[in-house]
Design a protein around this nucleic acid. Structure first.
Lengths: 334, 334
DNA sequence: TTGAAAGCGCTAACAT
DNA sequence: ATGTTAGCGCTTTCAA
């Protein structure tokens, strides 16, 4: 393992030039005679030289050519789509992506971000803040590198962000359920401290209000985190008298679909996010869809704009959502 | 942005000691008087000092505390589960994970690996090799850092690897279809150059042979890469006379399920990998399941063993698969 | 137990 | 157009 690798000095010696010239060639700078460049390049090829990035990054003002992506859980297809989008954009900018999952823990978010920004000195950060996100941490980090928030925004910090139309999307989904004659519509959601959760719940309430249906606290289950918890919550709700369930996100949706399936009750499901194979289910599911990859690409685009020096006030992009009904009878679309 | 951050020199000055002593404290070395340590630690806290990792990594023999994960496509839930497993293990070892998607392109695999190993000098690499993986590249990289292959192995290179029981899993799935009376069983798969694809096809043929069913080339569709391609291939197959379809992996499976659904023919589906919501489908699907996260954790465990100096011949772990039937009538399991 | 000093591989003035 | 030189921030002998 780890034998000595050729350095610029080795290349310089082999080519009979100075290290500075090698550096110029490697960095494609001007003021290098074509002949010299060729000489150096063949020495580089001959020795198999590859610049040591740690050494380059050490110099002040230099970059690490790396961005960080701190998300909730890489195993959730939703977040991995975001990661994929971010990675594509990063590649186009010649950057690598370091990923870290917070699993919803604020401590982990803090530790990860501190490590990435303060120690490893990434060039920028894409972050999905956890519920308890504190303004201090993000303000501190923003002093060093550009930070772009994805999907959620920490409360009180004006910052670059890409988010969804959460309340609008949820509202339209619930309105759809109301239109179909449902009145007792339950809600299963995650932490109300997460901005997305709060906004989606707000959309739910707006829809009810618009239809003159009183808000019933007993039909709402918050702080549900996993598929199995959602399934349990839905099963519990199905024990009472309900017409439909609106699920906060794709994990809640899967859990709810299982519970409804098991109950064999004619309860309709609607949810935020899309779920694969939903279109093949025997019963219709109404979904608030959008392209999660876009959250990643949009966020990364904003981040690289800042990395490349864009100044100005915080930008906020709101991605539109589309209401679709999948499954039920009929054939499956795209 | 990027103001000057405190260095060890700053800490040393603040604490009235030498930089060497600060280094000793930061690295938790012996030979530091308790009193001095406390002094330095308070200076560190006071200044908010965080060691510059690039500077540390520069010294020979030092590590970057980073591993690379080069996979096919982060957007595929299967691979993101692998990534998640790898990330968990990496965290336990105090390492960050840099991810790169190859999208099945050998050129991208080469570029990514070269960059990560030769330039950024990660401490180790987890890689899912592409089809055309060449022994040279992997041999070259193995000279510098430990490399562990996940899911597939490049042909001809004895190396650490974690793989699945591909032929056994596929064989049992197809045997299951045969037991249920099906004879004309189609096969939809990816590139036969990928070891997993080749092994799964082999398992399919073994099963047919065992049942005395002749192998029919016209029932096999290879080089299918995406969900929509799989759907098209399955639709095409459904135009002929077939009893069942075996799909190579989760992408093929989803495409096939769509096609079968649309055709309204009583054709049964079996597939490698698991798919969420399969258990809620009206028709049964037989799946060769296993825990993809384990591919990541196992691979990372092997990698860190090497990083921490384990020597000896290449190890190869084969993960068992479980045949399950999901969906159809009845209620849904876990 | 602590400090002085050298140097990791690279870049950027500055000089030529 | 090219070379010289002085660090970047850290670790590590070696000496005290």
């Amino acid at each position: 393992m780890s034998q000595r690798r050729p350095t610029m000095h080795d290349v310089a010696r082999a080519a009979g030039v100075s290290p500075a010239t090698v550096s110029r060639v490697v960095n494609n700078e001007r003021y290098v005679r074509e002949q010299t460049r060729a000489l150096v390049e063949s020495a580089i090829a001959g020795l198999g030289f590859q610049r040591n990035e740690a050494a380059r990054a050490l110099r002040p003002g230099q970059t690490t050519e790396t961005i960080a992506l701190v998300i909730e859980d890489l195993a959730n297809p939703f977040w991995s789509a975001v990661a994929h989008g971010a990675e594509e954009v990063a590649r186009r900018h010649g950057h690598m992506v370091v990923v870290g999952s917070t699993r919803g823990s604020y401590d982990r978010e803090r530790d990860l971000l501190r490590d990435l920004v303060l120690r490893r000195r990434v060039d920028g950060v894409l972050v999905v803040p956890t519920a308890e996100a504190q303004a201090d941490l993000h303000a501190e980090l923003s002093r060093w590198v550009p930070v772009v928030f994805i999907d959620r925004t920490p409360s009180g910090v004006p910052a670059d962000a890409v988010v969804l139309d959460n309340s609008g999307g949820a509202r339209r989904a619930v309105e759809h359920l109301l239109t179909r004659g449902h009145r007792r519509i339950a809600y299963i959601g995650g932490s109300p401290k997460v901005t997305t959760g709060a906004r989606r719940l707000a959309g739910y309430r707006q829809a009810l209000k618009g239809a003159g249906v009183p808000f019933d606290r007993s039909l709402v289950r918050m702080n549900v985190a996993t598929v199995s918890e959602a399934r349990a919550a839905a099963t519990d709700l199905l024990g009472g008298r309900i017409d439909a369930i609106f699920a906060d996100n794709n994990r809640m949706c899967v859990g709810t679909l299982h519970a409804v399936h098991d109950s064999r009750q004619p309860v309709e499901t609607a949810a935020f996010d899309d779920v694969e194979l939903a279109d093949l289910l025997p019963r219709p599911v109404t979904l608030v869809t959008y392209d999660p990859t876009e959250l990643g690409t949009c966020g990364a685009d904003m981040l690289f704009a800042r990395i490349n020096g864009a100044s100005g006030p915080p930008r906020r992009t709101v991605l539109r959502t589309t209401l679709v009904t999948r499954g039920g009878n009929g054939s499956s679309p795209g």
